[in-house]
């Protein structure tokens, strides 16, 4: 499916399950999302990480609502904890099957979002691995000068923000030197198609899913 439509579908479904409780819908959506990821040949290791990482949060929600409230309610506990899994599974359907650059292109071409927004976010995303390196390097730089910065030290993050501001300016210049001008028209070299097939898929997933959420408890 077209990445933008996929994104909108996920957004609508996530909103819908946060308004109306439906355990049936939650389980179905998690199941469908996992089946989809399996058909997309996502490596089993990543799927395992996907299943395990929300576990602490989901478990905490479940235990709290089922045992440690004045009026324990198993239905609500199961519902809210499975909801976390729905969010994670749905987002994974987008993030594990679409690269950031394809998504940015789709936002620009299909949703007509300002290119400044699409590419600005993309440039920032590409800086993220660098940011992680930066934090480690700042800690080492601190230790080399007798300054021990723990991971909750404000100095560490102040310095990281300074570096990020510095990078942001360089990045804006970089975009400009490669011909980017805010609001200027751009050509399309890699087209992200939005076909009738995408709309049909979108509708045939959205309508039954909404029906499930509204009609079933």
């Amino acid at each position: 499916m077209n990445p933008s439509l996929k994104f909108i579908l996920i957004l609508i479904l996530s909103l819908a399950i946060s308004i109306k409780m439906s355990l049936t819908a939650n389980y179905t959506l998690i199941g469908l999302a996992l089946c989809y990821l399996v058909t997309k040949r996502i490596p089993s290791k990543r799927l395992l990480v996907l299943l395990l990482s929300p576990l602490p949060a989901a478990l905490t929600v479940f235990l709290t609502l089922n045992f440690f409230t004045d009026q324990p309610n198993t239905y609500v506990a199961l519902n809210l904890s499975s909801r976390i899994y729905v969010y994670v599974a749905l987002i994974a359907c987008l993030s594990l099957t679409t690269t950031a650059s394809t998504f940015a292109r789709s936002l620009e071409q299909n949703l007509h979002l300002p290119s400044k927004f699409a590419y600005g976010v993309l440039a920032a995303l590409n800086l993220l691995p660098q940011m992680r390196d930066n934090i480690l390097r700042i800690r080492a730089a601190g230790m080399m000068r007798g300054l021990y910065l723990s991971f909750w030290s404000p100095v560490l993050y102040f310095k990281a923000i300074l570096l990020a501001l510095n990078s942001a300016e360089n990045l804006a210049w970089a975009m400009q030197t490669h011909g980017f001008q805010e609001g200027a028209p751009r050509s399309t070299i890699i087209a992200v198609p939005l076909r009738r097939k995408d709309w049909i898929e979108f509708a045939s997933l959205l309508i039954p899913a909404l029906g499930l959420i509204v009609l079933f408890k």
Partner: peptide
């Protein structure tokens, strides 16, 4: 691709 799209180079 990004740079060439900025310059409106056709595909």
């Amino acid at each position: 691709i990004f740079a060439l799209e900025n310059l409106q180079v056709p595909a």
